[in-house]
Amino acid sequence: MNYWRVPLDAEVIPLTRGQVHVVEDRCKGCGYCIAYCPKKVLAPSEHYNKKGYHPPLVAKPADCVNCHYCESICPEFAIFSVEIPCSPDADRKDAA
């Protein structure tokens, strides 16, 4: 993780991991989630949903830190993330 200013407890506090879910047919393709994902997890997809929009593609699923920002900015209730429980070892590796 690239920090602008590294928190003092960055070594100790494990980063959360999330899994992004897209309800594709609700998406209207505004691109807000793609533009504002702090970890650049999302990218525009090539395919269309049933309304003819390009829903976001979860391009780097492993990078999601479950911050819910995509969920917050999405005007369509079309994207959300859920926390992935992971082993403490994996957390420490991520945080490093």
Partner: peptide
């Protein structure tokens, strides 16, 4: 889906 346009700020 609701009636709001793509990118409308009402949704968030």
């Amino acid at each position: 889906p609701h009636i709001w346009c793509p990118g409308c700020g009402i949704g968030p």
